[in-house]
Design a protein around this nucleic acid. Sequence first.
DNA 1: GCTCAAACGGACGCGGGCGTCCGTTACGGT
DNA 2: ACCGTAACGGACGCCCGCGTCCGTTTGAGC
Lengths: 212, 212
Amino acid sequence: MTAEVTHPLRSDARDNRARILDAARTVFGEEGLGAPMREVARRAGVGPATLYRHFPAKRDLLTETFAEQRRVCRTAVREALADPDPWHGFRTVIEQICELHAHSRGFADAFMAAFPEVMDFAADREQSLRAVAELARRAREAGRLRPDFVVDDLVLVLMAHRGLQDTPRDARVAASRRYAAYVIEAFRAPGAVTPLPPAARLAGALTRTTQR
Amino acid sequence: MTAEVTHPLRSDARDNRARILDAARTVFGEEGLGAPMREVARRAGVGPATLYRHFPAKRDLLTETFAEQRRVCRTAVREALADPDPWHGFRTVIEQICELHAHSRGFADAFMAAFPEVMDFAADREQSLRAVAELARRAREAGRLRPDFVVDDLVLVLMAHRGLQDTPRDARVAASRRYAAYVIEAFRAPGAVTPLPPAARLAGALTRTTQR
DNA sequence: GCTCAAACGGACGCGGGCGTCCGTTACGGT
DNA sequence: ACCGTAACGGACGCCCGCGTCCGTTTGAGC
């Protein structure tokens, strides 16, 4: 939200701004926060200077770019918290966060603070963690969640989830789903079982991966 | 293995070479493959040119640096394969790989081919995967491994394990152990349970993480 | 202790990413 | 149609990492 209360942007400027945000969603979503600003500019069909005029620093662009996903994430958490079945809510919130992260590497990076100084997704994380803590309490009492689960375990598996990011998008989404299922399986109180989603083929992805 | 069959290095050269490899193990182990060569040189107390004379390119240094870990890894896999209890072997190999990766970010990066062009840990991976496939077959037949497990699931969880790398070393090792335990828990055929290792505190690690 | 080649390391060139400057373009109000 | 200004974008400076060059140092054989 870069303050444009001052003057209602000129038409071409508004246009470019929109195209930049579109490009940013695509580029950062696909390549992660490491993607160069120039790439966004190129894809938006504008010069670097234009991009930097609209978003003085990379962090500004990122904040704006992922505002939508942040909202989706908050909503998911709120709804999960309202779920009468705490175990279902718990599972759902894990699945949804993983899904969001799989669909946008950039959002995953930002949410997990790969660039800590960049922005304060800390608030979102805090909220999610508190919600999960509450869900976990209830799910454990309901006997569905394993008793030795602690909230840090969610952080653990979400941090680990980032390891799946360096993978082509299609494989990534499938991998993410199966991963989430395994995580839920691991967190489940011993007893009941449910089938996993289909396996993801990843052996090929290993040799063709990006750096960071 | 840079061919020094030609001339038996001068004493200071041999000394420097050893110090460089020491420094490389520390630096790459702690900071991952992304660590600058200069950092290794500084830590070894030599100039960049000296470093590059001993190891013409970064990949050469890396190959040499992680030769030891590769050997450990191969041994672990071989022993696991020889274990009369396939489920125990299966669990052990997962724990050992995770442990190795947790103790050396660089080795983890290399093993998971974060820099694909860098070197051919592909062979090690292939070997490990074949071994695990065999262990899995036996463990499944013994009814200890869940029937819907596929070998790609091991790739999946090991790729995910890389997500734990951007963490201070102490937390990383603890996190890695708990992660491995959860993974084994998830892979276990429904039925028996075993206690997890202690939880790792990670919430703090989120805000203080390195890029990559 | 002298000599000579092996080994060293500071300084350099190159590429790439971030953010900025300034001359040029084009919107939009009259 | 015309003008003023917002908006544009190519070119620039800066930093940092990789790998190299060349003048200097130093080990080791005599």
